[in-house]
Amino acid sequence: MQSSNSYTYFFVITMAVISALLLAMLKINLQERQEFNKALDTKKNVLKTVGLLEPGMSGSEVEELYTTRFTRQAVTDSDGNEREYYTYGSFQSPEGYVLPVSGKGVWSTINGFIALEPDKNTVKGISFYDHGETPGLGGEIEKDAFANRFRGKKIFRDGELVSITIAKARLEQESEHAVDGISGASLTTGAINTFLRKNLTDYLQLLR
């Protein structure tokens, strides 16, 4: 009986249905929590770019800072699309701007935020929080050590938007428009160079 084809089909199909049912039930039960975590993580990263995030901050503290210190606004890019961004601090005297940046990496879409000082030129902070790059190589972009290199860099040179280039050569590092790259992650950082410049261009209406 055990070796008959019909038994094999029966067993495999039963097995698959039970597994699928179990996983579907689990997903439905956990989905709300997972989405909450994801949304909280995004908010944490908005705070992180402007240096507000302290280690060990609770979810409700993050939530409160996020709602009281940031205002969501939008500009129109050259293609006529709405582009959302956050103003940090009060409306009259903003302390900074946080712009979402995203684009294609090597394996995945990379999402992040870049925060600018009120002069709309100096970088306050950057954070890549959602990506599927190779852990240990391209995945290093999420590390603070990498993000810290962007702080204080300038995105405009003589009134022209040059964005920030992640460079390989040490010479480039000393420029105020370039940061040191990551060994073994040339493709990921190259992709960031491309989409960072494009994303910043989309916000020209705000930055000018």
Partner: peptide, 11 residues
């Protein structure tokens, strides 16, 4: 199962 549980409780 364990991956989903981690995403929900130890994000």
């Amino acid at each position: 199962c364990i991956d989903q549980i981690l995403k929900a409780f130890l994000f």
